[in-house]
Deep mutational scan, measured.
Amino acid sequence: SKNWSEDDLQLLIKAVNLFPAGTNSRWEVIANYMNIHSSSGVKRTAKDVIGKA
Score class of each variant (00 low, 15 high):
residue 1 S to L: 06
residue 1 S to N: 06
residue 2 K to R: 09
residue 3 N to W: 04
residue 3 N to M: 15
residue 3 N to Q: 08
residue 3 N to A: 05
residue 4 W to D: 02
residue 4 W to R: 02
residue 4 W to T: 03
residue 5 S to F: 03
residue 5 S to V: 03
residue 6 E to K: 03
residue 7 D to E: 15
residue 8 D to T: 08
residue 8 D to M: 01
residue 9 L to E: 14
residue 9 L to I: 13
residue 10 Q to V: 08
residue 11 L to M: 07
residue 11 L to C: 05
residue 11 L to D: 02
residue 12 L to D: 00
residue 12 L to H: 04
residue 13 I to G: 15
residue 13 I to Y: 13
residue 14 K to N: 07
residue 15 A to T: 04
residue 15 A to S: 08
residue 15 A to I: 00
residue 15 A to Y: 03
residue 15 A to G: 09
residue 16 V to A: 09
residue 16 V to P: 00
residue 16 V to H: 07
residue 17 N to L: 08
residue 17 N to R: 13
residue 17 N to G: 11
residue 17 N to C: 06
residue 18 L to A: 14
residue 18 L to H: 07
residue 19 F to G: 00
residue 19 F to L: 03
residue 19 F to H: 11
residue 19 F to Q: 01
residue 19 F to V: 10
residue 20 P to W: 00
residue 20 P to K: 10
residue 21 A to M: 14
residue 21 A to I: 09
residue 21 A to W: 07
residue 21 A to N: 08
residue 22 G to E: 14
residue 22 G to A: 12
residue 23 T to F: 14
residue 23 T to V: 06
residue 23 T to S: 07
residue 23 T to W: 05
residue 23 T to I: 08
residue 23 T to Y: 08
residue 24 N to M: 12
residue 24 N to S: 12
residue 24 N to E: 15
residue 25 S to D: 14
residue 26 R to S: 01
residue 27 W to V: 05
residue 27 W to I: 06
residue 28 E to A: 07
residue 29 V to F: 06
residue 30 I to M: 04
residue 31 A to Y: 00
residue 31 A to K: 06
residue 31 A to N: 02
residue 31 A to R: 05
residue 31 A to S: 09
residue 31 A to M: 03
residue 31 A to H: 01
residue 32 N to Q: 10
residue 33 Y to K: 04
residue 34 M to L: 12
residue 34 M to S: 01
residue 34 M to H: 03
residue 35 N to D: 03
residue 36 I to T: 13
residue 38 S to Y: 00
residue 38 S to F: 02
residue 38 S to E: 03
residue 38 S to D: 03
residue 38 S to G: 12
residue 38 S to M: 02
residue 38 S to L: 01
residue 39 S to Q: 11
residue 39 S to M: 10
residue 39 S to H: 14
residue 40 S to M: 04
residue 40 S to F: 04
residue 40 S to V: 05
residue 41 G to Y: 07
residue 41 G to A: 15
residue 41 G to S: 11
residue 43 K to G: 06
residue 43 K to N: 13
residue 43 K to S: 09
residue 46 A to T: 10
residue 46 A to V: 13
residue 46 A to K: 11
residue 46 A to H: 06
residue 46 A to W: 06
residue 46 A to G: 07
residue 47 K to N: 12
residue 47 K to A: 14
residue 47 K to L: 11
residue 47 K to I: 13
residue 48 D to N: 03
residue 48 D to H: 04
residue 49 V to P: 00
residue 50 I to M: 15
residue 50 I to K: 13
residue 50 I to T: 07
residue 51 G to S: 13
residue 51 G to K: 15
residue 51 G to W: 12
residue 51 G to D: 15
residue 52 K to Y: 08
residue 52 K to G: 13
residue 52 K to R: 10
residue 52 K to Q: 13
residue 53 A to T: 07
residue 53 A to N: 04
residue 53 A to R: 04
residue 53 A to K: 07
